[in-house]
Computed example of a mutant assay.
Amino acid sequence: MTTDIKDTVHAVEAAAVMRLLPTRPRLLALGEPTHGEDTLLDLRNELFRQLVEQEGYRTIAIESDCMMGLVVDEYVTSGTGTLDEVMERGISHGWGASAANRELVRWMREYNDGRPASERLHFAGFDGPLEITHAASPRQALTALHDCLVAQVDADLLPCTAETLDRLLGTDDPWTNPAVMRDPAQSVGRSAEATELRLLADDLVALLDQQTPHLIAATSRNDWDRARLYGRTATGLLRYHHWMADTSPARMTGLVGVRDQMMAHNLLAVAERGPALVHAQNAHLQRAKSSMRMGGMPLEWWSAGALVSARLGKEYAFVATALGTIRHQGVDTPPPDTVEGLLYALPEDRYVVDAPRLATALGDTRPAPRVSPWFGYAPLDPAHLVDTDGIVFVKDVPQS
């Protein structure tokens, strides 16, 4: 069995990943089992550089606020702003402080300098404007969509004025109140104003769609793409706030489902540009149904990766990352009867693993699921090997 396992592993490089796949995918998704470790982000950066230089990839999409990501894309494509400003305002969840994320943005700007627009690299956030404790107000996305249409479409076709939107939105504080996550009664997501805003947002998105030929001709494909992002974000946030106000047992499942649906819609839009590397937590990118426990309740939902894979087929590929140790978080040497333990016993520090071949090599010997002593790390589920195109295995993750 050890010999067979050795035959499934390769050096960690983009070419080795691509050899695992039947064709060059439009979206190559690289998952991670934990957040905030620069060792994993440095590896992502190197794979992206190789994909750019060897495979013609031009976009990277990360698990960060899609609206904030526009700030990073402006910087890497045209030099707008400074690197310090962009890292502070362009990447959510506090990950702008990461040295590896900073190096990614710096390198993309350097690569683009002096290149024609058709050859420039692009950056995208594909998460919604959401945190685990709260969601953003729909104001920014909804008013930006309205502004785009006001500038180009006959006023008689618009379903409302900017003043109407402003009145219905009210102040942002009730929308972003962190107490809502624990107390649905404090949410404004099912108020009369929010219900009217959902109808208006739907009408604005429909108008945008109806006016597509005119809008692209009058502005540009990029401007139209940006307006579509505003529309997706506005309707997604209003849907998310609607679930925030829910009091049924389905509330948390509804929330995680809407979040990954927003991610999926953003990824499908990224795929329209051409081949892209996607980076996020494994659970957001896997093809199998995702599950977790929150507040003692088991949740199951279809991840962004599962939704996108159903649409794109072989043009979506998923490579999970698995780890041996994160000793500074109490994650020590994996048990030898787990997938991580079997890979940890091999001599090198990191590998690209052919996951379906590994599953075949293991045969009827089903590895035990690894149990993490730390909530911030999700071990590989051995049952998902056959649904995974590859695994990047990193033996030891030192403290960033």
Score class of each variant (00 low, 15 high):
A276W: 11
G330Y: 08
G79E: 10
G69V: 09
K289W: 00
R26F: 11
A276C: 13
G236H: 03
A162S: 09
R44N: 13
G254S: 12
E110L: 15
D4M: 08
L312H: 08
D332G: 11
G295A: 07
D183K: 08
R44F: 11
L299G: 11
E315A: 14
L267H: 08
N266Q: 12
P129D: 10
L28H: 13
C148P: 00
T77C: 08
L168Q: 07
M297W: 00
A151L: 04
A15V: 12
G313E: 06
R198G: 03
V188W: 03
L380A: 04
C66V: 12
G125W: 06
P369D: 08
H93V: 03
V86A: 13
G363L: 08
V270K: 08
A355V: 07
M181R: 13
V153G: 10
Y240T: 10
P367E: 02
G363A: 08
G31I: 04
R102M: 11
A135P: 04
R273C: 05
Q50K: 14
L43D: 12
L40G: 15
R226E: 11
R167H: 05
A141G: 04
G257W: 03
E74K: 12
N45K: 12
E88Y: 10
Q152M: 03
P347Q: 06
T247D: 15
D42P: 01
Q399K: 13
F123N: 05
T82V: 07
G341E: 02
V331R: 05
V352W: 03
V150G: 01
R311D: 11
T2F: 01
G189T: 07
A99C: 01
V86E: 09
R226W: 00
V71A: 11
A100D: 03
G31F: 01
M67E: 13
G231P: 02
P25A: 11
V188I: 14
T333G: 00
A269S: 13
H241V: 11
